[in-house]
């Protein structure tokens, strides 16, 4: 199971804890949307490659 964690803002302690548990013993990747010019092409590739995408607050 490959999880993609997408972050709309810098993750706080609660989000970090949930990510840690959800991705435990699983293949995980991440993408930061909270930048000036996100590489949407790369993000879509990552979404298509993942089994589950979680877009955190």
């Amino acid at each position: 199971m490959k999880i993609l964690n997408v972050y709309r803002s810098a993750p706080d302690d609660t989000t970090k804890k949930l990510v840690e548990i959800v991705t435990r013993d699983r293949d995980a990747d991440s993408f930061d949307l909270n930048v000036d010019a996100p590489d949407y092409d790369a993000l879509v590739d990552k979404i298509f490659a993942a089994d589950q995408t979680i877009c955190w607050w």
Binding site: L18, E20, V22, I54
Partner: peptide, 21 residues
């Protein structure tokens, strides 16, 4: 608890952090 929620999320097919903080 947050820990219990995290374990529950592992069972989910879709996880939705809703709206804004």
């Amino acid at each position: 608890t947050i820990e219990e929620l995290g374990e529950k999320l592992r069972e989910m097919t879709h996880i939705i952090p809703y709206g804004i903080i």
